[in-house]
Simulated scan of single mutants.
Amino acid sequence: MDEIPRAKFRIGQVVRHRVYPFRGVVFDVDPVFSNTEEWWQAIPEDIRPRKDQPFYHLYAENAESEYVAYVSEQNLVADTSGEPLRHPQVEEAFFEDDNGDLRARERVMN
């Protein structure tokens, strides 16, 4: 049985893309690739990530817009800038604790 990779980043952690100019906060983690084959094949082969690593769902933003991104662990680094995020869903999903870290809000399920 293959071992499931351990995620390097946690929910609520602010990260940035290693290559492209965007950053965001992790709101979910897949232990291995869990998107469509079509999505994966659309990535140019020379930069296509391996599937056997954690993939992160981010509330992401760049200079022009806010969006949701799905990014491999190999393409992320921790963002230590301390700059606030402007993505509108960040405030809905997280609160800032006394240390300045983002923590997931309790969600009511029906």
Rank of each mutant, 00 (worst) to 15 (best):
E3R: 11
E3T: 14
I4K: 09
P5G: 12
R6A: 08
K8W: 00
K8G: 02
F9G: 05
R10Q: 08
R10K: 12
R10G: 00
I11H: 03
V15A: 03
H17Y: 09
H17N: 11
H17W: 04
H17I: 01
R18L: 14
P21Q: 08
R23E: 01
G24I: 05
V26L: 10
F27K: 09
D28N: 15
D28C: 10
D28V: 01
V29L: 09
D30F: 11
V32P: 06
F33S: 00
N35V: 00
T36W: 02
T36F: 01
E37H: 00
E37Y: 00
W39K: 10
I43Q: 04
I43N: 02
E45I: 04
E45K: 14
E45T: 10
D46K: 15
D46T: 13
I47W: 03
I47H: 06
R48G: 10
R48N: 09
R48L: 06
R50W: 02
D52P: 00
D52S: 09
Q53L: 01
H57K: 13
H57I: 02
H57E: 08
Y59W: 14
A60F: 06
S65A: 14
V68K: 05
Y70E: 08
Y70V: 07
V71Q: 09
S72G: 14
Q74N: 05
N75H: 10
L76T: 07
V77H: 10
V77R: 14
V77K: 12
A78V: 15
A78G: 07
D79G: 12
D79V: 10
G82E: 03
G82N: 05
G82P: 05
E83R: 11
L85M: 13
L85G: 04
L85H: 02
Q89I: 03
V90W: 03
V90N: 07
E91W: 06
E92H: 14
E92I: 08
F95T: 13
F95C: 11
E96P: 00
D97N: 15
G100P: 05
R107S: 07
V108F: 12
M109S: 01
N110G: 01
